[in-house]
Amino acid sequence: MRLKIRLILLMLLTLPFMTIAKQTVLFVNPSVVDDPFWSKVQSISQHAAQQLGFKLDVIYGEGNRHIQFQELKKYLEYQKTPDYAILILYPGAAVESLKILEKFEVPAITMEQTISGEEKSQIAGPGEDYKYWLGEVYHDNYQAGYDLAKALHSVSNKKSNLTAVLINGHYGSESDMRAKGAADYFSSQGIEVAQEVHGSWSETLSTEQTLKLLKRHANIDIVWAASDLMAIGAMKACKIACADKQNIVFGGFDWLSVGLENVARGDTHASVGGHFMMGAWALVSLFDYHHKHSYWSEHRELVIPMGVITKQNVNNYSWMKNSPNWGLIDYRLKSLHLTDQSQYQLYLIPEIWQKNKR
């Protein structure tokens, strides 16, 4: 009897020091470890995970659909099954990825809308053919592409008879929607799109392609690019080949530090961004789902906002160039479970920074 009482007392005394097991979220980074954009998405996600009580496991897709699927398969088969997963569906591997998550019964949120055409019809929508696919966190790529085109037009010194070229990313829905938004804006303004090429998100490849475009098209006024790095690559090509580079305006996506520095100097002219918060938003919504909030049972998407930075407002965003501590944002204040909000309050940067620092 005394022994039993002692054991009970020991348990009561040690209970406050016992570690409560955290839920594990598998974050599938589709790129490589040092990718400038995806490393930022991952870093912000790690801050959010820590505040929300998640353990974040990370694997890398190395920019290849086959490698990403094999890494996902290996993790699920040889590691303890995670409680949740966050990933991008690579074109050509969407069905296999969703099937294996279904097999291991892992509720998942996908980032971006990357699948189109026949493959899109094969996977249907979240919660339809794959019940563990909770929903999509993404931004409006069409509107973002449109807004970048509009911003570049507004800063061009030449106001009529303009010619643009588009340097897109890879072949996929995300890139296609960005380019379609740009093409529609240019068409509405009577701006000719001389050619669209794909730069696979590479600065080097963009430089090579732009050199060819400059030889092929004599009067390029606007170079619209689907990433900051490709815009910088195009700008470098113009420095090599253009007698008067001031006549061409360049712009891209991602709000990279190097991109903002180039906008501040006037080497490039606009950058669209804010979507590096998508991993954090996915985690906030998973936190709510874990705590039985109804959002993902009533919705299939969470669309996050994006904004345009130009020379006129770049100083308002200068703090982002110096690797800010994204952990200063209180991600728990974004939770529907922990607040009385009925909908997610989706702020643009720097609004989220200013309103939600501890």
Rank of each mutant, 00 (worst) to 15 (best):
I5M: 03
I8M: 06
M11Q: 07
L13R: 02
T14L: 13
M18F: 04
M18I: 14
I20Q: 07
I20S: 09
A21S: 09
K22F: 02
V28P: 05
V28A: 08
N29P: 11
D35H: 11
P36I: 04
I44W: 12
Q50N: 08
Q50G: 04
Q51R: 00
F54I: 13
Y60M: 10
E62N: 13
Y75E: 00
Y75S: 01
T81I: 12
Y84V: 10
L87Q: 09
V95L: 15
L98A: 06
A108Q: 04
Q113P: 04
G117L: 02
E118Q: 15
A124Y: 04
G125D: 07
G127S: 00
Y130E: 01
L134S: 04
V137R: 02
D140L: 09
D147N: 15
V155E: 06
N157Y: 03
A164G: 14
N168S: 14
D176F: 09
G181M: 15
F186H: 13
G190T: 00
E192S: 15
A194Q: 12
E196D: 08
V197G: 03
L211E: 00
R216K: 09
H217I: 13
H217S: 09
I220S: 09
V223D: 00
A225F: 14
M230I: 04
I232H: 08
K239A: 09
F250Y: 11
G251T: 08
G252R: 06
W255R: 01
L256S: 12
L260S: 11
S271W: 11
M277H: 02
S285N: 11
F287L: 14
H291E: 03
R300I: 03
L302S: 00
P305L: 00
M306E: 04
N316G: 12
W319G: 06
K321C: 02
P324G: 10
P324V: 07
N325K: 05
I329L: 02
Q343S: 14
L346D: 01
I352C: 01
K355E: 10
N356K: 08
K357H: 06
